[in-house]
Amino acid sequence: MYYIHTIASITHQDSFQQANVWNTLTPLTPESTLITPDYKLFIPPAALRRLSPILRMAIAAAKSCQENNEDKIDAISIGTALGCLTDTEKFLVTFHSAQSDTLSPTAFIQSTHNTIGGQISLDLKNHSYNMTHTQNGLSFEVALMDAILCADDGKKAVLVGAADEAIGFLKQLQPDIIQDNRELTSGTTCCILSRERKASSIGIVDCLVRAETSDWQTDISDFLDRNETKIADIDAVFVSQLEDVKYVDHAVCYIDYTGLYYSASAFAVHMAYDKLTHTNAKTALIINRVCGNQLGAILLQKDEAPH
């Protein structure tokens, strides 16, 4: 069993450093905006001026986790589907319209996907293993699996999370490249994963990653079989697709609360974490089918053994 604790999210919900997100969730409306903290409290001004919105929120969430974690973080594993879009757009626009031979280095440096894990590492002054995973709709699940491998490899505290940002140009492209017309949003979630159980821990029982599924319900059934449980016994089910609510009794569509970004299943983990912590629910399942035929699933469990 693996455990997560010290979770932090910046989303369209009032989620950052809140004791119980589950109690305050409200479905998104067209007026919903990203609710951000005062980043100056988390990032030095000299660094802050260079950082795009996705880097600011990912670093603030990571730093919040570090501040609330007793152990030194000894690995960083981050998922992002589309990476640093603001800097990518800025670099490409400058490149396209450049009147000189030289281009601003900042947007170029920060336009690559692996900037996120790297910038977190720099800002935390943590030079241990760090990796940014980009696997479309499964980016968070792959980052989580890497974190589990790190824990198996002896890392005591792994910072695992995900971040994605929406920009105006992505919304223009949405009808052509994203087969989903729900509101595109931004968000980040980070948490600490370890093999050590603590008072605030919720267990990660298992994680499923299917790059392509032809029958997601059978795959979920097989996933639950291998964990010796069945869907009817799961107390809280979180799904990415609204239509899946009719297949899974008592399911909640987490995209209704996050808006659409491909790594939003990370915030579903936050929702599950708070539900398991603050209610009588003992098990939770997250089913992520946000991107095409990809399938991700995360099984969580409240561990009630004495600490």
């Binding site: 260079r50 009147q99 000189s100 031979d101 030289t102 601003s104 900042t106 440096i109």
Partner: peptide, 12 residues
């Protein structure tokens, strides 16, 4: 990195 930005500024 700011020094690199100065090079761009002078050129642009």
């Amino acid at each position: 990195i700011d020094a690199l930005e100065f090079i761009v500024l002078l050129d642009t």
